[in-house]
Write a protein that binds this DNA or RNA. Sequence first.
DNA 1: TTCAATCAGTACGCCAGCGTATGCTGCAAG
DNA 2: CTTGCAGCATACGCTGGCGTACTGATTGAA
Lengths: 215, 215
Amino acid sequence: MSEPVAKQNLSAEQWAEAALDAMASSGLEAVSVEPLARRLGVTKGSFYWHFANRDALVRAALELWERHETTDAIALVRDEPDPYERIVKLFKRANTSHRAGRLYLALAAASDDPAVGAVVQRVSAQRLAYLQQSYQALGLNEHDARLWSTFAYATFIGNQQVHRDAPEQFPSGTEFREYFKLMLRTLIPHGLAAVAPIQNAEHPHVVSLHKTVES
Amino acid sequence: MSEPVAKQNLSAEQWAEAALDAMASSGLEAVSVEPLARRLGVTKGSFYWHFANRDALVRAALELWERHETTDAIALVRDEPDPYERIVKLFKRANTSHRAGRLYLALAAASDDPAVGAVVQRVSAQRLAYLQQSYQALGLNEHDARLWSTFAYATFIGNQQVHRDAPEQFPSGTEFREYFKLMLRTLIPHGLAAVAPIQNAEHPHVVSLHKTVES
DNA sequence: TTCAATCAGTACGCCAGCGTATGCTGCAAG
DNA sequence: CTTGCAGCATACGCTGGCGTACTGATTGAA
């Protein structure tokens, strides 16, 4: 993001972080050794000291990303016993963290690459699983929770996409806050159980609000 | 899509279509002259007869894509006077046409390129505008229609993304049909709209609101 | 038949990015 | 101070894709 800051003695992780930066702003293809070295103010000689080849760098970056994503999610989770608030927090983060969003989109776009695809799939699956779990904690049965969580997750991702691809059209400022509220009250079937915070995903007295669908 | 079919006398449009195929399956970077020529069973000599350079091919492909997207949308529109059914049809198409979805995602991923970005933005804006218009026809005021249409569009896009990035997790078969219905009845505030125009987009079923964000 | 336009093939130079080999420098242990 | 090694620089060869110049081949009209 900045100029060739002539840092001394880079570490492998710094290379990986730089690779993630490059991805976030210009996609996986932008993770190329010589340009990256230039941006870091060194030459290839340094790179091939820390990594066997470009692929190794990509792998390291992916690993870093996956770790970040999972630990970040966990960190966001730990302190929040109320499932409703948990989901709200996840929404918030998804619609706030700009770099994380672009990173996800960049990696997802490159998921033809089997290495990338595998990581993207794991991260997606983990997010979805956690969302579903939160919806169940809200009082939905497993099936409905799966539908709603997929719905909500798709909307997360879609917002990032629209925000990037049509920034002019995407709500901002006050309107965004309204938009956000609309999504919240639409995507979280409240009025359900959330009154008393539930610690375990056991379904209490649950009335099926949006009744399970059937043809 | 198939093997080097040794066709005779390709046209520029065939090159452009092939370019779109390449994009859909492997991104913009895959639109490279020599590989494309191989896939088409010819050599570069042919290509540079039809196009000045690679950029011209990309531009032609983009033009083709934009035309397809707009005419397709219009074609889908013209015969359907009922706004509800119009939106349903758009939903259906968004969740059905696999190639179109991948194409959009590929182009969106490459929207750093200013030429690509401009087209993506125009197409997105047009889709959003049409969706908003349909929501207004449902009886929502302009503002609410804008919020709901953005919401719905983001969900469209997000579905494509999730379907591509986590195909295992995405509903399919019967479950998909349920999922689809859930989205429809959640994202289209019918019931309230069709008869009497409504100015406030309150969800009719929803009773109480958790106090949402600190806003 | 001729010939000109249209389309494709061949051969070449160029460049960016990858990877390798090897040389240079500073710093810390002996 | 010298030795060793971590960290980076330099120089080189290789490949793939771009673009150019030129040479065929086919076809339809004069």
